[in-house]
Design a protein around this nucleic acid. Structure first.
Lengths: 216, 216
DNA sequence: GTCTATATCCAGATAGAC
DNA sequence: GTCTATCTGGATATAGAC
């Protein structure tokens, strides 16, 4: 009883510390899971691999997550939130539409090229997109963020078409080719790993912009 | 003894019939496996699923194939052989390089759009490419055929550049973007299924060819 | 919170009857 | 050739000691 009451303070501090440590552990599990999932996919990745690579026991993983699927879905959620946030931020920028396109291409290519968590996220999304054997929730998150990204790029392209800096194909089609190219690159990266060298962003941008956009 | 000798003829005929039936069964297993692998990937596809979808028992699968991996590798081999053969055939055609590019784009897009075995093969290759958890042999086949395809397109692009019909970026880079776009489309197809509508082949071709190639 | 041990389940592969 | 029944291994998830 005494022990209990005099420890309210201490407990409170410990709780905070514990929460912090718990978050760190979770982050650690997420990080190694991200790497493994992005390389092998959900169903070929073993909880055991995740535990070993995280330097903890298999049982402990279940202290932080209820299942492998939950880890996966959590990662997809983070990935999607980041992508959507980036898309919205891009759209809000006070620059010309063609500059937004160039910037989007540049940022995406750089992210893919970096060979760190950022690129792993792309590959994870590729994994999630491609297999039917992923959690329902993860699939929904992915499709939603996909739709948002497509809409944003479509709007930017349309804006550019109005002022004549973007090629005149239907904007939705162009947007589709845009994301197609990006996923193709993520894909190339997934295949060839570090030896894959990204194309010059200009090659890609040029595919959507009118030539004069560059020459002036 | 008698039974044996009088059956030499019959056996011979049966053997032929059996061989034929065996081939059909194998083809049947391959077809259903192709569909399943292309949708869920190697490790999420169960031998049991393959058996059920093929209308046979699980045990019987092992009469025709030694393992799940063998089926997978067999499929990849077929896919790669076809891709390489198509690439070589394209290169040999007696038409202008820019026409070869247009034709390649058209054929690839049509194949992806068809929603039959052809498109499943693309998706299978995507599956194979993306996961580290595939048989070594399958990976090697894939990388080899990839290299060949890349070389073929590079040569065609270079040829076109000489006569001025293809854009002047480094040919190897353009070729990479070419295959990147194709895999991106396969990828889009994998995600959105039948609702995914392929872009006009011209949009893609135009990304590699000089404008005058179309207008003249 | 963390580990080890273990229960449970499921999938790949085999054996053997028909 | 085909099936059913079974073995075996491995992976998820849980229980319980510390």
């Amino acid at each position: 009883m005494i022990k209990y009451s005099i420890n309210i303070f201490t407990m409170s501090r410990n709780k905070i510390a514990n929460e912090k440590q718990k978050d760190e552990r979770r982050a650690q599990i997420l990080r190694t899971s991200l790497l493994l999932f992005s390389r092998k996919g959900l169903s070929a990745t073993r909880i055991n691999d995740i535990a070993r690579e995280s330097g903890i026991s298999q049982g402990l993983v279940y202290h932080y997550y209820r299942s492998k699927e939950e880890i996966f879905t959590d990662l997809i959620r983070h990935a999607c939130e980041n992508m959507v946030a980036a898309a919205r931020a891009l759209e809000q920028m006070p620059i010309a539409p063609e500059q937004k396109i160039i910037r989007a291409v540049t940022v995406l290519l750089k992210g893919l090229d970096k060979n760190d968590e950022t690129s792993w996220y792309y590959l994870l999304i590729v994994q999630a997109a491609i297999s039917e054997a992923i959690p329902q929730q993860a699939r929904e998150l992915f499709l939603l963020s996909n739709a948002v990204q497509h809409e944003v790029i479509t709007r930017i392209l349309e804006e550019g078409q109005k002022k004549g800096s973007v090629k005149k194909h239907p904007a939705a089609d162009l947007a589709m080719v845009f994301w197609t190219a990006v996923s193709g690159l993520a894909f190339g990266k997934a295949i060839h790993g570090e030896s894959f060298h990204m194309p010059d962003p200009e090659i890609l941008s040029a595919m959507f912009l009118e030539d004069r956009t560059f020459s002036r």
